[in-house]
């Protein structure tokens, strides 16, 4: 979740010069230290741009990891000004002001650090694997030698859509107060994904996942501190998913829960496909936006002199 004030601030021009305090770690000496870099900014500069600028022009030994630089791959998570964020999605203008142009950058908490800002996601991915993040059917052939898809209505899809947006960036894992001391805790990401597959109508083996999450280091260690949802860049809302998962495990143990519906294989088409007129999107719009009107209007961008001089 992006805080409202930061969204506002991100639209401004950042201060001309900012100081980046980067917490670095050298695996050969085993020492962690803070290094300061002073850099000039430009409008639209992200923290990742700033780090890359440092690497290219000031200090080539600074190590970071990124690939998509557009908030999709989930590899650039780091602690920026004390909060886990994606470096590529965080504007310098959102975290630095004229009065306080200092930005602190640290590697993600609770995840082993390999060097500088690069963290080792092996345990994180292991936990994701543990909850079996794939569709399981009573008859495995339906998946392995699938000829047709499984049926799923838009409403059923909406139930899990939010959770399926997870990019495995580990921000939630780094923010959670339970992972902070328990390295065996499955973590918000894995637990949210466990719920995502248990709730998926196409999946037929929810019991197998309930066994995995119902341990001393599973969903019952969560205390609904909600920080995972507060830092998630994709609005996955793991906190809500875990509470639903917990309800399912508790009611399952009491013998009061069983999967209500699992969908069947679609099978061959009964009727030929219908042709449907393409539509402009109706959901997910910024308040007051009209895509139909926008499509008709020619695109023109007015550059002011000030912008061009930058």
């Amino acid at each position: 979740m992006l805080e409202a004030e930061e969204l506002e601030a991100a639209k401004r021009t950042p201060p001309k010069e900012v100081i980046l305090k980067v917490k670095r770690y050298n695996p050969e000496t085993g020492k962690q230290y803070i290094k300061e870099y002073k850099i000039l900014t430009y409008r639209g500069m992200t923290i990742l741009d700033a780090l890359n600028y440092i690497k290219e022009n000031i200090d080539p030994t600074l190590t970071t990891r990124y690939s998509c630089r557009m908030g999709v791959c989930g590899s650039c998570g780091m602690i920026i000004n004390g909060k886990p964020r994606l470096a590529c999605q965080t504007q310098v203008a959102a975290v630095a002001t004229e009065e306080n142009p200092v930005i602190t950058v640290e590697p993600l908490y609770n995840i082993p650090v390999i060097r500088d800002l690069v963290t080792d996601f092996t345990p994180f991915f292991e936990k994701h694997k543990m909850i079996m993040p794939y569709i399981m059917r009573k008859n495995p052939k339906e998946v392995d030698e699938a000829e047709y898809e499984f049926l799923m209505s838009p409403e059923e899809h909406l139930e899990i859509y939010e959770y399926s947006l997870c990019i495995m960036c580990g921000l939630c894992y780094s923010a959670c107060p339970v992972t902070a001391s328990d390295p065996e805790y499955l973590g918000p990401q894995a637990l949210a994904q466990a719920y995502r597959y248990i709730a998926d109508v196409r999946d037929e083996e929810p019991e197998k996942r309930i066994v995995v999450v119902d341990t001393e280091h599973g969903c019952h260690r969560c205390h609904f501190a909600g920080t995972c949802s507060a830092v998630c860049p994709k609005m996955v809302d793991p906190a809500a998913a875990i509470q639903r998962l917990r309800k399912i495990t508790l009611f399952y143990r009491l013998g009061l829960w069983r999967k209500k519906k699992t969908s069947r294989v679609a099978g061959p088409l009964e009727k030929p496909l219908r042709k449907i007129e393409a539509q402009y999107p109706t959901h997910n719009l910024v308040e007051g936006a009209d895509p139909e009107k926008q499509a008709k209007e020619p695109v023109s961008i007015d550059f002011t002199d000030e912008m061009l001089s930058e």
């Binding site: 979740m1 992006l2 409202a4 969204l7 909406l158 139930e159 899990i160 859509y161 939010e162 959770y163 947006l165 909600g226 949802s229 507060a230 998630c232 994709k234 609005m235 996955v236 809302d237 906190a239 809500a240 509470q243 639903r244 959901h283 997910n284 719009l285 910024v286 308040e287």
Partner: peptide, 18 residues
């Protein structure tokens, strides 16, 4: 904790709106 929904600006998780 709300219902799962389509993410829309200003992107407040349903569990915080519930």
């Amino acid at each position: 904790i709300g219902r799962p929904e389509l993410p829309k600006p200003p992107y407040i998780p349903p569990s915080f709106k519930g």
